[in-house]
Design a protein around this nucleic acid. Structure first.
Lengths: 336, 336
DNA sequence: ATGAAGTTTGACACCGGTGTCATAATGTCG
DNA sequence: CGACATTATGACACCGGTGTCAAACTTCAT
């Protein structure tokens, strides 16, 4: 099986390399007859252009990199699925690269990534989308990127996020409307901007409804199931026990639910539990978790789509969008 | 900021391109003095070789593709994590590519993938690792690949799997030893070879212990939570209700647990439930699921590592390995 | 028929590396 | 010290495409 290159096609079709290249790229200024002829040879020889050669000549790879470091597997797969959708729409591919936010190695690590695989752009997911250091580095290196789910203010880079604060506000209000006044809160990972946003949503809702904010009702988490289990212990040990718990994501909420069930505390009769994200687990457990649906796939899809648009035309206006989060009520919350 | 190429380095160091290339690749036949000098210039100019140019010259991309189509998100992330570990060890990167097994588009789709991004090799995860059509295609195209978790017999391709049959056998035996005789079984997706293996493990254990196999106790699933919910309904509606349920993966087991809890059937007092895979959800719910731990990351890690070895030296012996699966008992199973 | 403008085409350099081979420099040994 | 093997180095083609530019060919108005 011989290799079919642009040269063999050109020779076979009796035209120049460049003309073949023109047909390949749908460039104008090729006579219909010639175009037809070349296209026929493509078929006949089953010609596949070599993307690496093309990449070298155009300095493009048609590969987008996805940076993440997130304890939630479902979050990652949702991100990937949205990113892939956009990539495939434009014939791009997706390269994934988990790495650690902490430490000086981050920049080094990303630098290494850019060195070993010429990426056309990078999608940053939390907590990277919030990292000023990284953003500055990418700008300096002239690497196009888009930020997902970041509250960090930066008008010069593409950003698609959802309204975490409003979501948390609504969820808290939902609990309040059910008659709850002692509402515990489990915070997320301090490196994620969403953590602070969700927390303010919670606080603002309390304030608005004249409910006193009590610090002892707030536990520190980091979005992992494990941290949720620790916080759950703290909260369920409180005297008196709060009548509702709002965890900053569903994994931590699931951990609270598990401990409560273990201790024969009935949910939602004795305590209401709510999460955030509408992760699959929220509907895979009983009772199902009341939560806030974040359009993770949609955010990422839009971010990557805009990223690719910007890559192909750098003069494109910087896209910044906030999508709505939506309250989903299930069985884990009920009137006090 | 000017681009630093091998030419500028060569000029700056006062040597030829080729000598720089030699230093870059740690080739012999460079005098220590020259090597030193060039290395210094690398540092000074902060030279980064262009992987695309190198790829063109060597016909390599240093990218491995990962093919999957699996309803279980946690399975996918575990696969990815194992694959990434191996990739990074050898300075490769990982490109992910979900696609559908069904239909003629599979080959077309993979062909497209190979065309748009020159991959050095492919990791196939179930159900692709079981697809004879795909395997034949890749062999014909001379694309190196490794198969993960496939029971399909093929001595000529790299394969790492775990012993599904034995795992299912052990788990069934565990239930039998607890006194269960009416053990329902939920099958997995028919396209996965693991489905048949787990089923035989179940059947063999029954046989070995003189327990009659009853077809009505077997429900068809497809590894998705949703299919598990359907099967759960079937099984919990049986008269008399079985005293144990063995689902072919943890998601389906979780669905059974959810429905049981909803119906106030106590687990494990009224019914024991077991899964397979040791997915995160198995320990995120209450009661925790008894299950079989499959070393998914390890399988994939080994597969990719061997794949890369074979890419760099095609004469490497074809690696075939079966890893052990391990019984993990949690609260969801108890004596009858 | 003629010139101006527009269209089609190909020659050739180039992207940034690697492989081949000839030549130059150095080392070895009788 | 000369003959020969070994090591170090560079010139140059090549990987498979794309960009530039000039030449050849059309088209069309005058």
């Amino acid at each position: 099986m011989k290799k079919v290159t642009i040269n063999s096609v050109a020779e076979y079709a009796g035209v120049s390399k460049k003309t073949v290249s023109r047909v390949l790229n749908n460039e104008p200024n090729v006579s219909p007859a010639t175009r037809e002829k070349v296209l026929k040879v493509f078929k006949e020889l089953d010609y596949k252009p070599n993307p690496i050669a093309r990449g070298l000549a155009r300095n493009k790879s048609f590969i987008i990199g996805c940076l993440y470091d997130n304890p939630s597997k479902s979050y990652i797969t949702r991100v990937q699925s949205g990113a892939l959708e956009a990539c495939h729409k434009f014939n791009y591919n997706l390269l994934i690269h988990p790495c650690e936010l902490r430490g000086d190695e981050l920049i080094e690590n990303v630098d290494q990534l850019l060195t070993t695989s010429r990426l056309d752009g990078l999608v940053l997911t939390p907590p990277f989308s919030d990292s000023q250091v990284l953003i500055d580095f990418l700008k300096a290196q002239n690497v196009p990127f888009a930020r997902v789910a970041s509250a960090l203010q930066d008008d010069t880079s593409i950003s698609v996020r959802s309204n975490d604060e409003q979501g948390a506000y609504e969820l808290t209000e939902h609990l309040i409307s059910l008659g709850h006044k002692e509402i515990a809160f489990i915070k997320g990972h301090p490196d994620h901007s969403a953590t602070e946003k969700r927390f303010s949503g919670y606080q603002n809702a309390l304030l608005k409804h004249g409910i006193e904010y009590k610090e002892k009702l707030v536990a520190e988490g980091n979005f992992s199931y494990h941290s949720g289990a620790d916080s759950a212990k703290e909260i369920l040990d409180l005297e008196p026990m709060p009548t509702a718990v709002f965890a900053s994501n569903d994994y931590m909420a699931a951990a609270v639910l598990k401990l409560a069930t273990q201790r024969r505390i009935r949910v939602p009769e004795d305590i209401s539990i709510a999460g955030f994200d509408n992760a699959p687990i929220a509907r895979h457990i009983w009772p199902g978790l009341t939560t806030i649906a974040q359009p993770v796939e949609e955010m990422t899809r839009q971010a990557v789509e805009q990223l690719i648009l910007q890559i192909s035309d750098p003069s494109t206006e910087v896209y910044q969008k906030v999508l709505e989060a939506k309250l989903i009520t299930r069985e884990s919350t009920a009137a006090k």
